[in-house]
């Protein structure tokens, strides 16, 4: 147990470092640029219509507070961190006076649900198919899937999502291409709403899965084709260990560890994809919130979503890291 404790401390420290560096980047971006973010925001907001001079002055004051532009840079820096740690990003400018925190709280379950589901599906299906493809190298349909994955994997989320949208929205309009649920359905735990959510999430989920599955498939296939030449697999083969045991406990089990690390390392990229996918399909999650926040010049919202994204992704990475010793018992000894 002390070994695990040491290991967990190390991981926790890495988590703190990620959040620290990430938030500092956000601070530097918003504070060291020559452009005055307050005037930027005000011009973005006021360009839409007439706003009285008093209202603008009021807005300028609250913005300066929000940006933490009062006092010298040390005070600014400390107040910036205080806001982040208290998750207080002030009122949203675009949905005034709703606080940014409540907008994020409303959007978070959508993104979390979509991402958790699609990541889990593409990771497990991709790995399973990849393992089979690495083991049964001459299987026709698995080979075909490999070619498909090769062609699909390097294409960015945006292109895949757009193509799906064209196909299912215009050429063969059978699926809803925008929104998280039907407008006329009451949100809540009723059958209609849940069905509508599922219906609406088909396209966003499909595009995320289509992209994700390829890289897991290709990664697992090459891992497995290396593992089957390892001594312990050859030895188990000549020892007549049963096929299913061989596949599960010898091949997949040993390929799993790098794939779990890979999952942790690609969560950031997966989140990037979600931002775009959500925006394209008008899905009411963090991505849409972020992009709309930029369009509306809503500083608090953009900073809030960015911080939540950094913390959320590194927290997920931390969770994966902490359960990693279950998958590979060697790691505690090594560290």
């Amino acid at each position: 147990m002390p070994a695990y404790f040491n290991f967990a401390i190390k991981r926790l420290w890495q988590f703190v470092l990620v959040v620290f560096i990430g938030i500092n980047i956000a601070y530097v971006i918003t504070h060291v640029t020559p452009i005055d973010p307050v005037e930027q925001s005000i011009s973005a907001v006021t360009s839409f219509g007439n706003t009285s001079p008093e209202a603008i002055a009021d807005m300028r004051r609250s913005l300066q507070e929000l940006y933490g532009l009062k006092g010298d840079w040390i005070e600014q820096y400390i107040s910036f961190w205080r806001r982040i740690l208290q998750a207080d990003f002030g009122p949203s400018l675009s949905a005034f006076p709703a606080p940014v925190t409540s907008l994020i709280a409303r959007a978070l379950p959508w993104t979390f649900g979509l991402l958790a589901f699609t990541t889990l599906v593409s990771w497990s299906v991709g790995n399973l198919l990849g393992a089979l493809a690495g083991y049964y190298r001459n299987n026709r349909s698995l080979k075909f899937f490999g070619v498909l994955a090769m062609a699909l994997h390097p294409v960015p989320y945006y292109i895949v999502a757009l193509s799906l949208m064209i196909v299912f929205g215009f050429i063969w309009p059978v699926l809803p291409i925008t929104g998280g649920s039907a407008m006329d359905v009451q949100q809540g735990w009723n059958w209609q709403f849940v069905a509508s959510v599922f219906h609406h999430s088909v396209l966003p989920a499909l595009s995320l899965i289509m992209i994700g599955i390829g890289s897991w498939f290709l990664g697992m296939r090459s891992l497995v084709s290396n593992i089957i030449t390892e001594d312990y697999v050859v030895y188990a083969e000549i020892g007549g260990v049963a096929q299913s045991r061989m596949m599960g406990s010898y091949i997949i089990r040993n390929a799993l560890a790098p794939q779990v690390t890979g999952l942790a390392m690609s969560l950031g990229g997966i989140f990037n994809g979600a931002v775009i996918t959500e925006k394209i399909f008008g899905y009411p999650g963090l991505g849409t919130l972020l992009v709309d926040g930029v369009y509306a010049g809503d500083y608090g919202l953009v900073l809030g979503v960015t911080s939540i994204a950094i913390i959320g992704v590194s927290l997920s990475v931390l969770v994966i890291d902490l359960i990693y010793p279950l998958i590979d018992p060697r790691v505690q000894v090594a560290s």
Partner: peptide, 30 residues
């Protein structure tokens, strides 16, 4: 016949045991 009649001790035996499996399970597998 494998293992009951004919068995092997391999070159590089350091790596012939599945690193992620307890010795008990390995005995059972074989």
């Amino acid at each position: 016949i494998r293992w009951s009649k004919l068995s092997y001790i391999m070159q590089g035996s350091m790596n012939v045991l599945n690193p992620l499996r307890q010795i008990r399970s390995i005995f059972r597998d074989f």
